[in-house]
């Protein structure tokens, strides 16, 4: 099947979604996904961040689709032509979606554990606008503990339903779901029942924002100060393939291994996640590849791996030109620096 996305044509299997096809091309073309999570069945279609324009439905019926379609759940037809990053309407709508998602979001990134690996941060950085148009009070909720390991801060939640699907599909006994409606809807457990099963910790990994966080890791470190290492162990409950997050020599956090789209490859059990926090529990495989242009890679760890891309280089160059031309005559003449301070 042939599909054209942003003027790039590729062959895909029948049944592929537009999102999957776009991801084959690369992260520049792939629409943002806040709710879609490939390993979980039934996710997608909720955040509307991945809406794209279909300018030709298929070879047989080349009419454009009247509305923007969610790329994560729309399957490709032969000869379909899709516009994502080159369509004004799509980009304008996406701006609106960011605005909607941030409307009741507290923007407390400075005290949020997710900052640095938050999909909402990435999404709003890439597609949002810097100014807000709202003067209304935000809806607020009290943070609650879902058992000893998981903290729920509903203020930050964007109701992507990923955790609901994860809890449904990975664990037994349905205790985790959504209560109420509209913008007062909240993630909750049945009568505040503590979540108690072996795979509940995965809801933390699937959460795109800081609504569900690891209570054993909270406030221990900013994520960009920690160094991820792939490791494995013999676990009778799960595959045992994890990522360890080091601060110095200390394992401060254990998570599942994620692919370049931030999706967990193999879900891990709570014992691995919350209790095996010594290096001696693990066989280290080596540094984790952080494939996305993440702030985590901006730390000393892996700093040499990132190549500044075009705009950053350009900006630095332009800044230098401006700086060189700056009129400094009003400043008192400065003595030349001692040689030890020169680089």
């Amino acid at each position: 099947m042939k599909v054209t996305i942003d003027n790039i044509t590729l062959e895909v299997e029948p049944g592929t979604t537009i999102m999957q096809a776009a991801r084959m091309i690369g992260p520049e073309i792939a629409p943002p996904a806040m709710c879609y999570y490939e390993p979980l069945k039934g996710t997608g279609g909720k955040c509307r961040g991945c809406l794209v324009k279909v300018t030709a439905g298929s070879e047989k019926d080349p009419r454009p689709m009247p509305k923007l379609v969610p790329s994560c759940i729309t399957t490709v037809q032969d000869g379909m032509i899709v516009e994502n990053t080159i369509n004004e309407q799509v980009l304008e709508t996406r701006k609106g979606i960011v605005e909607f998602l941030l409307l009741n979001h507290p923007l407390d990134c400075p005290v949020c554990d997710q900052a640095g690996e938050c999909h909402l941060q990435d999404f709003s950085f890439e597609h949002g606008v810097s100014a807000t148009r709202t003067v209304e009070d935000r809806n607020t909720f009290d943070p609650v503990d879902l058992g000893p390991y998981i903290k729920l801060n509903m203020n930050r939640c964007i109701l992507c339903y990923r955790c609901v699907y994860a809890a449904d599909q990975l664990t037994e006994g349905r205790v985790h779901g959504v209560m109420h409606r509209g913008d007062h809807a909240e993630i909750s457990t049945y009568i505040e029942k503590a979540i108690d099963n072996d795979f509940s910790g995965n809801v933390i990994d699937v959460c795109p924002v800081g609504a569900l966080t690891d209570r054993t890791y909270r406030f221990k470190s900013r994520v960009w100060f920690s160094k991820p290492e792939d490791a494995h162990c013999d676990c009778d409950k799960c595959s045992g393939n994890v990522t360890l997050w080091y601060r110095g020599d200390e394992v401060i956090r254990v998570t599942g291994r994620k692919n370049e789209w931030g999706e967990v490859k193999e879900f891990i059990c709570n014992t691995c996640r919350f209790e095996r926090k010594k290096t001696s529990d693990w066989v280290i495989e080596g540094p984790t590849k952080i494939a996305r242009h993440s702030v985590i890679s901006a730390n000393k760890y892996g700093a040499n791996l990132i190549q500044p891309s075009f705009p950053i280089k350009q900006a630095a160059l332009e800044y230098k030109l401006i700086d060189d031309d700056r009129d400094r005559s009003f400043l008192p003449a400065r003595k030349s620096l001692p040689s030890s301070e020169k680089k």
Binding site: K46, L103, G182
Partner: peptide, 25 residues
Amino acid sequence: YHHESCGQCSPCREGTGWMDKVIKR
């Protein structure tokens, strides 16, 4: 509509509440 939005997709969930609050103001 603010009260009756199911809260599943973001434009409706947040947008209906926003419009309600602005018109109320």
